[in-house]
Design a protein around this nucleic acid. Structure first.
Lengths: 192, 192
DNA sequence: CGATTCTTTGAAAACAGTCAATCTGTGTGG
DNA sequence: CCACACAGATTGACTGTTTTCAAAGAATCG
């Protein structure tokens, strides 16, 4: 399972064998079955999680029980609840698996340590964070300025790979409207 | 004008005199009159901008001419278009002043250099970025899960200081609905 | 004071949410 | 292999919310 992560580290950070060994030393492999949790509301998120295989979602459950999906993560994406991880506070969100998945876990302490001891890891993490912030910015723009139909089209264009493997009701949740609305948008679509 | 920034650097990063001198050496003071631009669509954002006094907004102009406000920045906030700044590409957004403002500009090159030469600056920037990402996450959750009224209440609670100095139509734009809707939400409010 | 900008209001139309029923595909156990 | 349950998707009727457009009312500034 680690090989895919190793690939990633070579490609994205340009690590040498020694450095990869250092990462491996603090990596924990884990399998998560579909519908099982990686993180549950109320617990502190202590791990950085790299998705080797499968698909995870980060979501918030409202008072009325409605799920609001904040992020998806598929192969070669990182997933965690940043707020909980950074501040060591209980998470308000859940992470679970939408497919049988394989992940690499690195505790926050080890993760920070890797950044301090391996400059290339530090740079990689910087790039990831920067892109993550840019993506958030784009999503906010989509949220406040697009119509439901535009949001949907934009999602397909932005994440074609994620789109086809996730139930539509979850895409609706991610975009911020009901599954029925999404269904009606799609049916208009077909007629054109 | 630099004194306020100096204060900030002492408080937030714990810099000593020597380090502050290094920051000062690359800082440019600038005044921006109300309604004037700091950045215009199509130009590359090359500066990190610290707001000493006043209020700025970052916004996108849609094809139909509608303004969509991505962020505000008041005293002691940083403002830039991250996507343009990080990647050296033309910005899709505008930054202008909502009040007569005073800012400190530090070019991206100098900014990165300060981070590399002064560890305390690096740490401070890390903290800012982390909090920025968390704030984005919370805003996305608000966007996809709150009603218009809840979004408005939440804005007032989160940014009471910003709220009272910005036209309501801009708050509506920031929250993603029309000024008329905001007006009606407010009038319901008064009756309770 | 007049001009400008901002806010409010009203009425109609467009849009989205809710609830309940139906349809579809998948997989399981008899 | 069939019957059944299950999860997901769709549809219709109804309700509630938001937008749009136009007009009028405040507030602010020179």
């Amino acid at each position: 399972m680690f090989e895919k992560f190793e690939q990633y580290l070579i490609e994205k950070a340009g690590l040498n064998e020694q450095e990869i060994a250092a990462v491996r030393a603090v990596s924990v492999e884990k399998k998560i079955r579909k519908k099982h949790y990686l993180l549950q509301e109320g617990n502190v998120c202590v791990n950085n999680c790299f998705v080797v295989k499968g698909c995870l979602r980060l979501y918030f459950v409202g008072e009325d029980g409605t799920e609001h999906i904040l992020r998806f993560a598929v192969e070669n994406w990182w997933m965690s609840d940043q707020e909980s991880l950074n501040n060591g506070i209980p998470s308000k969100n859940n992470i679970d698996a939408l497919e049988d998945s394989e992940v690499i876990l690195i505790s926050q302490a080890d993760y920070v340590n890797l950044q301090m001891t391996i400059p290339k890891v530090c740079e990689m993490v910087e790039r990831i964070k920067a892109r993550s912030l840019e993506a958030s910015q784009r999503r906010i723009l989509s949220n406040i300025s697009f119509s439901a139909e535009e949001k949907y089209k934009n999602f397909i264009k932005t994440y074609p790979d994620i789109f086809y493997r996730i139930p539509l009701r979850m895409i609706a949740s991610y975009l911020g409207f009901s599954r029925e609305t999404l269904s009606r948008i799609r049916s208009q679509f077909v007629q054109k």
